[in-house]
């Protein structure tokens, strides 16, 4: 799922400083799961904003609401009657949700309250790990199910480089070397042949905005 992290309070406060009535909108999807922008985080953010505003001797009308998924227009539209009463919206969804919100309400400024960080997995509650950069040309087949695009600091396709160090990446003793892991896994599966071959240059597919239309639906969307 998409993983996000809330922006620093000062940055959020700064973004909304010119507006009197602010609606903070959470998303019931990915950002709820990663504890960055769900209903609880909406309430926490508004409480924190209230407090800093009070310290500064000002106040605003801070509304809160949580949409089940901000990246879905059907689910977003239930806000139609509500947004008119506000000067700006603080969206706690990922970048996709913020954009759909801004598209639905083009006359109202929409500000992001979280930084969308990555596509990743839940390691534990409150701990998430990046796994995929949506390159559009997945190579996991020959890398033993370990993504070199995401996990190798230099995005190598013919690793491991000479910097791998006690199982860690040369950039940090905290980050495991992706290619050492790839090597070990393929070795364990007797598949080292997969990386003995020279891998040609990547055909990057994430350089233009992409649209996915599943084959079954091509007739519907493409005339």
């Amino acid at each position: 799922m998409v993983k996000a992290k809330r922006k620093p309070l000062e940055e959020i406060a700064d973004a909304i400083s010119a507006y009197g009535k602010v609606l903070t909108v959470g998303c019931g999807g990915c950002v709820s799961v990663c504890l960055a922008g769900g209903q609880r985080e909406v309430q926490e953010l508004n409480a924190e904003l209230e407090l800093t505003l009070k310290e500064k001797g000002t106040s605003k009308t801070l509304g809160n609401y949580t949409v089940e998924r901000q990246c879905n227009m059907d689910l977003l539209q239930e806000m139609d009657d509500m947004v008119g009463g506000y000067d700006c919206i603080l969206s706690m969804a990922c970048g996709a949700g913020v954009q759909l919100m801004a598209e639905r309400y083009p006359n109202i400024p929409v500000f992001p309250a979280v930084n969308t960080v990555f596509i990743g997995v839940d390691r534990d509650i409150g701990m998430y790990e990046e796994k995929c950069r949506a390159c559009g040309e997945c190579v996991l087949a020959y890398t033993g199910g370990i993504c070199p695009v995401t996990r190798c600091a230099k995005g190598l396709f013919n690793g491991p480089c000479g910097g791998t160090n006690n199982g860690k990446c040369e950039v940090s003793q905290e980050i495991p070397c992706a290619w050492l892991d790839i090597y070990e896994r393929l070795k364990g599966q007797g598949r080292l042949d997969d990386i003995l071959k020279l891998q040609g240059v990547m055909q990057w597919q994430n350089q233009l905005q992409r649209t996915v239309v599943q084959p079954k639906f091509e007739k519907r969307y493409y005339k």
Binding site: F157, N158, G159, V171, L198, Q199, V201
Partner: peptide, 24 residues
Amino acid sequence: LSGDHQQFGDHPNAKGVFDIDSTQ
């Protein structure tokens, strides 16, 4: 060469290109 990772240098938040690798 691949090059040292930008994190080691004086512009640690530069976007590393790494379009192709040194072998390629």
